[in-house]
């Protein structure tokens, strides 16, 4: 087997993110108000919450995407705005059907009018296991392969902060486990926020785990789990934390 190329180092020290007094009012309902959220620099943070709690809106706020009724004060720990320092991965792969996989991965540079770094894109595709599919059209790929391509596109952006909105929720269980492990490996050293409604996914991947619950919603931090991600779902510590999360989310009492 040929040696796997190393991912390029993230420029500068890891960037922490601070969000202060975030508010979301939607259709007369206050989903959250005065909400604070901190992301530790270089750490994989998982934000867990049931659907409709406003966690996707929170992520969109962090990504700089406008959403109706959302506001908040968002900065990096260097005091500067996050604009241009964020990569975003959505639940849908958002691959453009008229471009092949390689061109999809280099979409960002073409949008910015830069010359695409094709060797680096090919390296990343090899890392996500799509070396042979670089010239394939997205509609010829399976759901898992498409999400791998989206992961490569996210990494290609090479931003210090990576925001992921339930990126694996549309996949079958086995593909999901493989992609979680891949993401955990490839995103080491970056400030990551992964929004999910799956407690096991958060427990498997999270360096820090935040739980969002209630209305208006608050964010609580779970005690850090032992061991480096990706963790074994059968680990007793993971199981215990799983029960604690279900209690927090008021699924069990």
């Amino acid at each position: 087997m040929s040696p796997v190329p190393v991912l390029p180092a993230i420029p500068g020290p890891p960037l922490a993110v601070n969000l202060r007094s975030a508010q979301l009012v939607y259709g007369g309902l206050t989903l959250f108000d005065g909400l604070d959220l901190d992301l530790t620099g270089g750490c994989f943070t998982c934000l867990l919450g049931s659907s409709g709690i406003g966690k996707s809106s929170l992520l969109r706020l962090l990504a700089g995407l406008t959403a109706i009724g959302v506001s908040g004060d968002l900065r990096g720990d260097d005091g500067l705005p996050l604009t241009g320092r964020v990569a975003w991965m959505a639940q849908q792969d958002l691959l453009l059907p008229w471009l092949n996989v390689l061109d999809n991965v280099t979409l960002g540079s073409r949008l910015r009018g830069e010359r695409p770094d094709r060797p680096r894109a090919l390296n990343l595709l090899a890392r996500v296991g799509l070396a042979d599919a670089a010239l394939a059209r997205p509609d010829t790929l399976s759901g898992g392969m498409r999400q791998r391509a989206a992961l490569a596109r996210t990494l290609m952006e090479d931003r210090p902060v990576v925001l992921m909105d339930e990126p694996f929720s549309g996949l079958d269980a086995l593909t999901r486990l493989r992609l979680q492990a891949l993401a955990a490996e490839l995103l080491i050293g970056r400030t990551v926020l992964l929004v999910t409604h799956d407690p096991l996914e958060a427990l498997r991947l999270g360096g820090h785990i935040l739980v969002m619950s209630g209305r208006p919603a608050i964010v609580q931090t779970l005690p850090d789990l032992p061991g480096a991600p990706p963790r074994d779902p059968g680990d007793p510590a993971v199981q215990a934390a799983y029960r604690a999360i279900l209690r927090l989310l008021e699924v069990v009492t």
Binding site: G64, T83, V86, L94, L96, W98, R112
Partner: peptide, 25 residues
Amino acid sequence: GWLDLARVMLPESRRWAVLRHIALP
């Protein structure tokens, strides 16, 4: 979703680039 992706990749508004690479096709 495609427009959102473009906005995160290209924060300064460049409608021409978005038109050429995303909206038009």
